[in-house]
Design a binder for these strands. Structure first.
Length: 599
RNA sequence: GGGGGUGUAGCUCAAUUGGUUAGAGCGCUGCCCUGUCACGGCAGAGGUUACGGGUUCGAGCCCCGCCACUCCCGCCA
């Protein structure tokens, strides 16, 4: 059984050749006498012809009774199709294979859902697709995603190899480090009552590799986080994990720009313009209300604090007196927003602790709003010019502390864009990719409930050098050497220059983050020790590989680019995991289960 | 943990808003058909309306519970 050609290979120049093809029955057209079977493999498909005048009735009957997706092998002669019967829709449409011999390699039962019709298959319930993932993956769209993922992985490896990087594997049986995401634990049989944890990322190992003198490390690393899932979050996912020694931020920006340029060229044939634009965390919040801006459309936030500082509208002037700001966005053409849509936006505002959402609908030449009667003429004039107000606009306000006001409008801005998209008033070019670096994040954030500082990124992020003196005096002013790469409102990756001096690291752990010395020693002692023996300055980044592939494939769900993804509750519907284990397995692991068995 | 959506034939969806025997297209089965490619024609089978309760003369539809999938918030250093 040896194929001579794949199913997308034959062209008119092959006419006269005798070929052997193998693949799946894509579709069957039985005209009573002559019978056509389109045979498909991963490369494409081709029409085969069963002519009863030169085949036995047994062969014809056997072929006629095949279900879709049966696996067959066909031997036949390639010939040009008769004039007028060419099929321009498929690449092999000029030719067909006149069957001389045929073998059923495997019969297929009737399928649970169609795989040959893209229009229907696209709408099939995802639950069913996941249960029969092997069928789902046969669909051309899914096969294309898998192939593109593989090509991008290879391009990534080739590019980083060219740049002198070593691919180093790090353990997936790691130590529990309770900061950050919840971990998956793995009980140790040999050490009763002790556990490994699956890594949230290879962060600590990659830094140790820098101490080990690797200088340039990368890995397509599997990472695990036991948090609730989303369309763009799976419990296990893949990062392009990178770390380099003797670099500054600029070195990393150009490396990643080069990598993404290569990837986009390989996958889509697109030449990304570089360098990417850069925007500070503060500017991102000020203009877009979010630290991962989608800059493909406007509707930017406008600061109106000075215009309303002395307003008689107390909701605004009061917020300003409390140290807050007044900001607004102009949702162009959305004055037609329904009561329900305004309600949804108000709920967003309330979820950030706002009391309500002030708005103005500009309709029929007037400003329809419960609040506009409180505005002076000067205030109205300021609004009109600052927000470029025109007929049909919807103006939305937030008056709150700076971060809150920005985030409320950031959320609403994205919601308005979705509404405008649904109404056909906003169209985004699917070939457009707005990359940017978001930089100058605050190193620390304050947790009001716990009354202490925590790392915005992670505790190994180096402060911007000139801000180090502020660490103890004014922590919130300290900027971290952290950077995120963002495209079209998606956080594609993030990283930082790391702290490489053990003294600074110890200060961060113990004095700023208030982790007791003994605990620091237990959790990170090996790192602090490693850093005592000559740690080079270093930094790195991790790119969400699944997210990147999803963007390249034009899908919003990373499940579409992972061969065997899990559901929102972390289940694999094909293998039915997670599942119960035997009493003996539990005994070996020294584990007693208290939860009631589910089934 | 919270909120929204979905669940009706193998698949995709209807069912005049509580009213007779739950329909259609595709798929499937049988028959016919020698140039189709969404082949065509005729006939047929196929339903615990996710599941469990309740209200009602009567429930796919209303109420309560529950399960699964999905989207979002929280969470994701």
């Amino acid at each position: 059984m040896k194929r001579t050609h794949h199913c997308n290979e034959l062209r008119p120049e092959h006419a006269g050749h005798t070929v052997t093809l193998a693949g799946w029955v894509h579709s069957r057209r039985d005209l009573g006498g002559v019978l056509f079977i389109d045979i498909r493999d991963r490369e494409g498909r081709i029409q085969t012809v069963f002519d009863p005048s030169d085949l036995s009735p047994e062969i014809c009957n056997s072929a006629a009774s095949l279900h879709s997706e049966s696996v067959i092998e066909v031997v036949g002669r390639v010939r040009q199709r008769p004039q007028g019967t060419e099929n321009p829709k498929i690449a092999t449409g000029q030719v067909e294979v006149l069957v001389q011999g045929f073998t059923v390699l495997n019969h297929a039962d009737v399928l649970p859902f169609p795989v040959d019709d893209p229009e229907v298959a696209n709408k099939v319930n995802e639950e069913l697709r996941l249960k029969h993932r092997y069928l789902d993956l046969r669909r051309p769209e899914m096969a294309r995603n898998l192939r593109l993922r593989s090509k991008v992985a290879t391009a990534t490896r080739v590019f980083l190899d060219e740049q002198g990087f070593l691919e180093v594997e790090t353990p997936t049986l790691f130590k529990s480090t309770p900061e950050g995401a919840r971990e998956f634990l793995v009980p140790s049989r040999v050490h009763p009552g002790q556990f490994y944890a699956l890594p949230q990322s290879p962060q600590q190992f990659k830094q140790i590799l820098m101490v080990a003198g690797v200088e340039r490390y990368f890995q397509l690393a599997r990472c695990y986080r036991d948090e609730d899932l989303r369309a763009d979050r799976q419990p296990e996912f893949t990062q392009v994990d990178i770390e380099m020694s003797f670099i500054e931020r600029e070195d990393l920006y150009s490396l990643i720009e080069g990598l993404l340029k290569r990837v986009w060229k390989t996958a889509l044939g697109i030449d990304l313009p570089t360098p990417f634009k850069r925007i500070s965390f503060e500017e991102a919040l000020n203009r877009y209300g979010i630290d991962k801006p989608d800059s493909r459309f406007g509707m930017e936030l406008v600061d109106l604090t000075e215009s309303f500082r002395a307003s008689s509208f107390k909701v605004f002037s009061g917020a300003i007196q409390n140290g807050g700001v007044v900001k607004a966005i102009n949702a162009k053409g959305l004055a037609c927003a329904t009561q329900g849509q305004i309600e949804t936006m108000t709920e967003y505002a309330k979820s950030f602790g706002a009391k309500g959402l002030a708005f103005i609908k500009v309709e029929g030449g007037e400003w329809k709003s419960p609040i506009v009667k409180f505005f002076s003429d000067a205030e109205k004039a300021a609004l009109k010019s600052r927000l470029a107000i025109e007929e049909g606009d919807l103006i939305l306000f937030a008056a709150d502390q700076w971060l809150n006001a920005c985030e409320i409008l950031g959320k609403i801005r994205l919601y308005c864009a979705d509404v405008l998209k649904a109404q056909g008033k906003l169209t985004l070019d699917p070939q457009r990719f707005d990359f940017m670096w978001v930089i100058e994040f605050p190193l620390l954030s304050f947790d009001k409930e716990m009354n202490r500082w925590y790392s915005s990124h992670h505790p190994f992020t180096a402060p911007v050098a000139e801000d180090i003196p502020l660490l103890k005096s004014d922590p919130k002013k300290v900027r971290g050497q952290h950077y995120d790469v963002v495209v079209n409102g998606v956080e594609l990756g993030g990283g930082s220059i790391r702290i490489h001096q053990p003294a600074v690291q110890k200060t961060i752990f113990e004095e700023i983050l208030q982790i007791p010395a003994e605990e620091t020693q237990l959790r990170f002692g090996y790192m602090l020790e490693a850093f005592r023996y000559g740690a080079p300055p270093h930094g790195g980044i991790a790119l969400g590989f699944d997210r990147m592939i999803a963007i390249l494939c034009g899908t919003t769900s990373i499940r579409d680019v992972i061969a065997f993804p899990k559901t929102a509750k972390g289940a694999c519907l094909m293998t039915d995991s997670p599942s119960a284990v035997s009493a003996k397995q539990l005994r070996d692991l020294h584990i007693e289960v208290k939860a009631a068995r589910k089934d």
